[in-house]
């Protein structure tokens, strides 16, 4: 717990953290508000309450797609900033276990990502219900939980992927470029080819977008969750492994 508390102090005492979270939340909320207003105004009048509530939830998590990049960069900075300044040495002098440091960073960043997604989702949801009031939306239909879980996992995964890339690549600019490449460029490029669906199944973006109902289903829901969870865990394990090799135990 000491390591987690220390990482939380480190994260909250840098202004860049609040810039990243603020930009992510505000741009996402803006997109949600715009999206909800335009989409809901076009709904057919015979929409049921469940249907309307589902529509609101889906509109809310469109915003989270935008927030994942600033938070992914926050993940990258959380470690690359220490490599650039050299402060990583003090971190390891204070907490010699590389795995413990990385786990603590991952725990703190996950918490920030979840809170960030809630800061987008809760006001967005309330606003959406307000706009869709005439359809009398129900509270949260069963299908909404997949969207909520998928959208939350998406932002957590991108944040942790940023951390892992920062750990392995050490240079903030390179790690950020790699993050954008994996999350945005590769799925976009893959889409232009006939085999794109095959590749996209293994990248983090398509499964996430499928879970939040933004793209057609090409895999079962549980597969999408598994692939996403894999992108949260496996790059971090690679980070711990390479960290051990470069400056690790004999």
């Amino acid at each position: 717990m000491n390591a987690i508390a220390a990482e939380w102090i480190k994260l909250r005492t840098l202004r860049s953290t609040w810039w990243a979270v603020g930009i992510g939340v505000l741009t996402s909320l803006a997109l949600t508000v715009l999206g909800a207003a335009t989409v809901i105004s076009r709904w057919a009048p015979d929409r049921t309450g469940d249907h309307a509530a589902m529509g609101v939830v889906v509109a809310v998590y469109v915003g989270v797609i935008l927030a994942q990049l600033p938070l992914g960069m926050l993940g990258t900075m959380a470690i690359s900033g220490e490599h650039t300044s050299g402060m990583i040495d003090m971190t390891f002098v204070a907490t010699p276990s590389r795995a413990r440091v990385l786990t603590a960073k991952a725990a703190v960043l996950s918490g920030v990502a979840v809170v960030g997604s809630l800061l987008i989702a809760v006001p967005g949801y309330l606003y959406g219900r307000f706009v869709a009031a005439e359809f009398q939306p129900s509270f949260l239909p069963a299908g909404a939980w997949t969207v909520i879980a998928g959208g939350t996992l998406m932002i957590v995964v991108t944040t942790l992927l940023g951390l892992a890339l920062g750990m392995v690549l050490r240079n903030g600019a390179v790690a950020t470029a790699a993050l954008v490449g994996i999350v945005l460029m590769l799925p976009f490029v893959a889409n232009m080819f006939s085999w794109g669906d095959v590749v996209n199944r293994f990248l983090p973006t398509y499964p996430a977008l499928q879970l939040i109902e933004q793209v057609p289903d090409i895999m079962p829901t549980w597969t999408a969750f598994t692939v996403l969870a894999g992108w949260a865990v496996i790059p971090l394990l690679i980070g711990v492994f390479t960290g051990r090799r470069s400056a690790g135990r004999p």
């Binding site: 005492t13 840098l14 300044s85 050299g86 040495d89």
Partner: peptide, 10 residues
């Protein structure tokens, strides 16, 4: 060690 190895924003 290296006293300059601190993050200046804190």
């Amino acid at each position: 060690l290296d006293a300059t190895a601190v993050q200046g924003g804190r």
